[in-house]
Every structure is written in structure tokens, then in C-alpha cells.
């Protein structure tokens, strides 16, 4: 395959997200402008101007009309996807790390970093259908875990919120009361910071990637460990194919260590694993730095990766990918 290289960002990529139809790709980077691209040919559709800090995460509504972004400028913003217009700004007292729309797009979960004696928190916001009714009040604030919460997503039927972060523990919270329902087993869980979390297409299970050089597959209801994928580099990003039983892990050594070692040791490929057999299928090379973001097109026929090198690489699979046998 010949990947499409998209060089719209000047700083390292942080997050990638496809809309539900798979025709738009949203990219967030440490420069301040989230960007939307056409996912088939990589043409840039527009940028969302207004943030004043690194943008860590984004999510797009099911109808592809609203975009929510969380940024280090201590805000999360709602955008009109089509025009790039800012609709609303949620102000926080610390950087917003992760955002996720609930099923139905009526709620959003936003996590904020620990900052200036403030502990990290998970905020649940109501998203009004009409922007003029939008308020910035949180309907629920969950505090408790130590360290950054790198990812918080909605569980099945919006009943729970699944969070993971620096303390390497995955937690399931009640999304109405904010009570801690489950905590991942210390024995089988990750040993280092969890950097990424990706839900399966049907939401029944999810994948976490961690700096302990492994990715783990969990049941979204019972929080039982299903599979472990072991690799030889810290995992910064994970994605799951909606079409085949494949998982993709991206990572590489810490960006600060890149210059101190041999280029081959960096291991900047995206590694494909068989979801069930936990065996490595192959690797896709190309980035000059660690992979920070991965996303699978909802049709399963292409995926994109975003790296520390500022490039988004959009890969459309060759036909032989679809009948790979282990």
C-alpha cells in the first residue's frame, strides 16, 4: 500500500478520530488547530481555530455535526463540524485531557489533569441540542484517582464511565451517581501508565495500551481481562479493526530518548496482532518518531496513524490484507 501523508500539523499528533460514516478524519496535535480531512484522499477540509494550547483529544457526534475538543488551554470546545465555528467553550481550572460523547450525543465526559494542587477529575456535561441552551455546568464530577486520567469513555448504555490513566488502574464508575463500581485487578492489570483506550465497534469490550509495553483487552461490563498483547515498545496508541479480528498497537520509545539510540531501536512501526491468538501479524513502518495516535476507519478498510513527527499517515489496505492467515 502507498500511504497518504498528511502534513497539516506542525507539532506532534495527539489523537485521531473518524466520524461514523468514515468519510472524515479528525486530527488533534500539540499545535493549536484540530484539523478535519477527507478520509478517502486525505484532502484537508478545514481547521478549527480558537484553542490556545495543545489539543489532546476530540470526539465527533454521530451525525457528524458537532465536534468536541479538549485542550491544554484549560478548555473544552464545541464546534460546528461544517463551518469550523466555535459553538461553546467549557472552562476548567486545569488542562482537559480526554473527551467523549455518550451514545445519543446528549452527554459528554471530559477529564481534567491534576494542576496547581487540583486533583484530576472526570466531568460529565449535558450537551444541549440547541447551542443557545448550552451551559457549562457539570452534572457530575468524579474525583479520586491519583495522577492524570488519560482516557475516559462511556460504557455500555451510558450507564458507566470507564477511566484509565497514570495510576495504571482501569476503573468503572456509575455515570449517574459517580460511585466507583469496579477496579481492575492489580495482578493482571497494567504495571505502568495507561496511555490509550479504544472501544470495540459494538462497545462490548475495549483495549488499553500502556507504557509497560503491553496492550490488554477487557470486558466492558465485568472488567475481566480477556487478552494480553505483548510487544517490545511502550504502547502509546491502540486501535481495533471493526472488520477483522485484528488489533493495532503503536508506540515507540519515549520521544526524549529518540536521539540517544540507534534508529532501528526506535520501533516506530504500527504492529498488527491477531485479536484472538494474540500473535503478531505484521508491522507497518513509516513514521520517524513514536506513534501517538491510531484510528481505524469504521469500514475496516483503512487506518491512519499520527506520529510525534507531525505526520498523519493514511493507509488503505491492499486486498491481500483481508486474507492474511497466521
Amino acid at each position: 500500500m502507498r500511504p497518504i501523508l498528511m502534513k497539516g500539523h506542525e507539532r506532534p499528533l495527539t489523537f485521531l478520530k473518524y466520524n461514523r460514516d468514515g468519510d472524515l478524519l479528525f486530527s488533534c496535535a500539540k499545535d493549536h488547530n484540530p484539523t478535519v480531512w477527507f478520509a478517502d484522499n486525505g484532502e484537508r477540509l478545514g481547521t478549527y481555530r480558537g484553542h490556545n494550547g495543545a489539543v489532546w483529544c476530540c470526539d465527533v457526534s454521530r451525525d457528524s455535526m458537532r465536534l468536541i475538543t479538549g485542550s491544554a488551554d484549560q478548555t473544552a470546545k464545541l464546534w460546528n463540524v461544517q463551518t469550523g465555528q466555535q459553538l461553546f467553550t467549557f472552562n476548567f481550572d486545569s488542562p482537559a485531557r480526554s473527551v467523549d460523547f455518550a451514545v445519543g450525543d446528549k452527554l459528554a465526559v471530559i477529564t481534567t489533569d491534576p494542576f496547581m494542587e487540583l486533583s484530576s477529575a472526570i466531568h460529565v456535561k449535558l450537551i444541549a441540542r440547541d447551542t443557545s441552551d448550552q451551559t457549562g455546568d457539570s452534572i457530575l464530577v468524579i474525583k479520586g484517582p491519583q495522577g492524570r486520567i488519560n482516557r475516559a469513555i462511556w460504557g455500555p448504555l451510558n450507564k458507566t464511565i470507564i477511566s484509565a490513566g497514570e495510576d495504571a488502574v482501569i476503573r468503572i464508575w456509575d455515570s449517574e451517581t459517580g460511585k466507583l463500581l469496579k477496579e481492575a485487578d492489580k495482578e493482571s492489570g497494567h504495571k505502568k501508565t495507561i496511555t490509550s483506550l479504544a472501544k470495540s465497534a459494538d462497545g462490548s469490550h475495549f483495549l488499553t495500551g500502556s507504557l509497560d509495553k503491553s496492550a490488554k483487552l477487557w470486558d466492558a461490563r465485568s472488567l475481566s481481562l480477556i487478552k494480553t498483547y505483548v510487544t517490545e515498545r511502550p504502547v502509546n496508541a491502540v486501535a481495533m479493526s471493526p472488520l477483522l479480528d485484528h488489533v493495532v498497537l503503536g508506540g515507540g520509545q519515549d520521544a526524549s530518548a529518540v536521539t540517544t539510540t540507534d534508529h532501528r531501536a526506535g520501533k516506530f512501526e504500527a504492529k498488527f496482532f491477531d485479536k484472538i491468538l494474540q500473535e503478531e501479524i505484521g508491522g507497518v513502518k513509516g513514521h520517524f518518531g513514536p506513534i501517538n495516535a491510531l484510528a481505524f476507519n469504521p469500514d475496516g478498510k483503512s487506518f491512519s496513524s499520527g506520529g510525534e513527527d507531525g505526520y498523519v499517515r493514511l493507509h488503505h489496505f491492499d486486498p491481500d490484507y483481508f486474507n492474511i492467515k497466521i
Partner: peptide, 8 residues
């Protein structure tokens, strides 16, 4: 990309 990238 000018380079053909394969799933290795």
C-alpha cells in the same frame, strides 16, 4: 508516499 509500504 513514494515508498511502497508493506505489512511486514
Amino acid at each position: 508516499s513514494t515508498e511502497e509500504i508493506l505489512l511486514e
